[in-house]
Design a protein around this nucleic acid. Structure first.
Length: 461
DNA sequence: TCATCTTACACGTTTGAAGCGT
DNA sequence: AACGCTTCAAACGTGTAAGATG
C-alpha cells in the first residue's frame, strides 16, 4: 500500500472529506439517515434521527445518542450526492451495554437508496458463537486481521450495474470497557474518536452479477491501534466496543456524475471489543479452534501449551532431541469456518490477485484516457482498470506492510477534515465526489482496490 | 502494584515463482 | 510458445509469554 503523499506528491498532504458546508450548495438532498432492517425486509431502507416511528419489533426503541461523536454516518458524504430512493422509517434496536448478555435480534441495519437489495451474514453462526462469549478482536501496531471476518452474500442487485463494496467500523457506544475477570463492564468514557477509515473491497467495482455470484469476504481488513498508522488500516481504540458496517455503493454510470445509491448494513452479532491481548480465555479457545492460522495452538499442535512446556523443559535440560512424535491433524471441532466461500470454494479464492480475477467482469471504463476530472467524479470507473490508474511514484518505497508484491497495489487516502470536520469546495459543481473531497487539487485519485479510504476524518486530538 | 501494551517467537497457512511435462 | 500442474521457499497470520510502560 502506498500513501497518497508518496503516490501523488503534487497533491500535498491534506485532502478533506466532509459533508457539504451550509450555504455552499443547497441543491443536494439531505443525507439519508441510517436505519436498522432485517435482511430482506428492510429494503429501500430508511430511517432515523429526524423521524420517530414505532419499531415493528417488541422491545426495541429509538436509540439515544450517548456521545455527539457516536455513530456519525461516515458515508453521509456519499449520500449527499446520491439520488435518494423512496424512504420508510424504522428504528434501530438498542445495542446492549455488555457483551455476552444480550439477545440481539438478527437484524441488519441499513441506509438505503437501493431498493430490493439485501445482505445476509454468511458466517452468522460463527459470529453468534463468538458473540455469545463476547467477541474480542486483537489490534496491533502493525495491523491485525479480524476473525471472524465479515462474509456476506448479497441479493437484489442489478446484475448489469456496478457496485462498490465498502466496510468500516464504528463505535457502538461512548464507553470504555474493562475485563472484570468474568465479563466486560463499562469503565469510563470512551477516548476521542479516531479518524474514520473505510476499507474498499478489492473487487470493487464489479457488476451486481459478480457480487451475487458468491459470498463477499472482507477477511483482508486489518485493525490497528496506531493513530499514526501509515498503512491505512482501520484505526481503533483498545478496550472499546465496535461494530463493522458494510456499504454498497452503486456507480450508476461509469462516466456520469451521479452514483446510483447506497445501502448500508450492520449485524448485531458482529459487535466486538478491541483489545491488545485477549482477556477472555474462552475467546482465545474459540479463535484457536476456528482460525486455521492458529492451528498450531490446538490440542495436537506443536505449539499447544503441553508441547510448549515440554520444549521449555527440554531446553533447560540440554540439547533438544529430534522430535519423533507426529503431531496430529490439528483439526478441532468447529474447523476453519471462515475458510470457505460459497460451496466448496475457499474463502481465499474469492479475492485472488488481479491476474486470477475475472477481469472480463470489470472491463475498463469506456472513458477516454485517465482524465483527472473523470477520476475525481467517477473514481469507481477506474477500479479494475489498471491503465487508468495513476503511476506510482518510484521514488517512494513500498510500504513495509507487504513483504511481497501487493496483488492489488493497494493505496489509500488520508483525508483530513477541515475546521469543524466538514465543508467542501463551494465552487465545485460536481454532484457527488466534490461533496466529500475538498482542499486539494482535483486530480485527487481514488484509492485502488483493496484500499482504505478516510472519510469525514476528525482531528486525532 | 496493577492494567495495558509491545515485542519476539514458533508454528501452520498462503502465495507465487520456478521447474517440468505435454 | 503456450498452457497446466507440481514443488518449494518466503511471507504472512496466529496466539503466547516475557518484558516494558504508565
Amino acid at each position: 500500500m502506498y500513501h497518497p503523499r508518496e503516490l501523488y506528491p503534487s497533491l500535498g498532504t491534506s485532502y478533506r472529506l466532509g459533508p457539504p458546508q451550509p450555504g455552499a450548495d443547497s441543491s443536494f438532498p439531505p443525507a439519508l439517515a441510517e436505519g436498522y432492517c432485517y435482511p430482506g425486509e428492510f429494503w429501500g431502507a430508511f430511517l432515523y434521527r429526524d423521524w420517530e416511528v414505532p419499531w415493528p419489533w417488541d422491545g426495541f426503541s429509538f436509540p439515544t445518542p450517548q456521545s455527539p461523536d457516536l455513530d456519525t454516518p461516515k458515508l453521509d458524504c456519499f449520500l449527499s450526492g446520491i439520488e435518494a430512493g423512496p424512504r420508510t422509517l424504522a428504528a434501530p434496536p438498542p445495542l446492549p451495554p455488555v457483551l455476552g448478555t444480550e439477545s440481539a435480534p438478527p437484524a441488519a441495519e441499513a441506509l438505503h437508496s437501493l431498493p430490493g437489495v439485501s445482505l445476509s451474514l454468511e458466517n452468522r453462526e460463527l459470529w453468534k458463537e463468538f458473540n455469545s462469549v463476547g467477541t474480542e478482536m486483537i489490534i496491533t501496531k502493525a495491523g491485525r486481521r479480524m476473525f471472524p471476518a465479515c462474509r456476506v452474500s448479497v441479493t437484489g442487485l442489478d446484475p448489469e450495474a456496478r457496485y462498490l463494496f465498502l466496510l468500516d467500523v464504528v463505535p457502538v457506544d461512548g464507553a470504555r470497557y474493562r475485563w472484570q475477570g468474568r465479563r466486560w463492564e463499562p469503565s469510563g468514557k470512551a477516548e476521542p474518536r479516531l479518524p474514520d477509515r473505510v476499507y474498499i473491497h478489492p473487487d470493487s467495482p464489479a457488476t451486481g452479477a459478480h457480487w451475487m455470484r458468491q459470498p463477499v469476504s472482507f477477511h483482508r481488513v486489518k485493525l490497528t491501534n496506531s493513530t499514526l498508522d501509515p498503512h491505512g488500516h482501520l484505526i481503533l481504540h483498545s478496550m472499546h466496543k465496535y461494530q463493522p458496517r458494510i456499504h454498497l455503493v452503486r456507480a450508476a454510470q461509469l462516466c456520469s456524475q451521479h452514483w446510483g445509491g447506497v445501502a448500508s448494513f450492520r449485524f448485531p452479532e458482529t459487535t466486538f471489543i478491541s483489545v491488545t491481548a485477549y482477556q477472555n480465555p474462552r475467546i482465545t479457545q474459540l479463535k484457536i479452534a476456528a482460525n486455521p492460522f492458529a492451528k498450531g495452538f490446538r490440542e495436537n499442535g506443536r505449539n499447544c501449551k503441553r508441547e510448549r512446556d515440554a520444549r521449555v523443559k527440554r531446553k533447560l535440560r540440554g540439547p533438544e532431541p529430534v522430535a519423533t512424535e507426529a503431531y496430529g491433524s490439528g483439526e478441532a471441532p468447529g474447523g476453519p469456518c471462515d475458510s470457505t466461500l460459497g460451496g466448496d470454494v475457499r474463502e481465499s479464492d474469492s479475492e485472488q490477485a488481479p491476474a486470477r480475477r475475472d477481469t472480463a467482469l470489470v472491463p475498463a471504463p469506456p472513458c477516454a484516457g485517465p482524465s483527472a476530472e473523470a477520476y475525481l467524479l467517477h473514481p469507481a470507473a477506474f477500479h479494475g482498470a489498471p491503465n487508468h490508474l495513476p503511476t506510482r511514484n518510484p521514488s517512494f518505497p513500498e510500504a513495509v506492510d507487504s513483504g511481497r508484491s501487493a496483488p492489488y497495489s493497494a493505496a489509500f487516502l488520508e483525508l483530513q477534515s477541515g475546521p469543524g470536520g466538514s465543508g467542501y469546495p463551494a465552487a465545485s459543481p460536481a454532484p457527488f465526489a466534490s461533496h466529500f473531497l475538498q482542499g486539494g487539487p482535483f486530480s485527487l485519485p481514488y484509492p485502488g482496490p483493496g484500499a482504505y479510504l478516510d472519510v469525514v476524518s476528525k482531528p486525532m486530538y
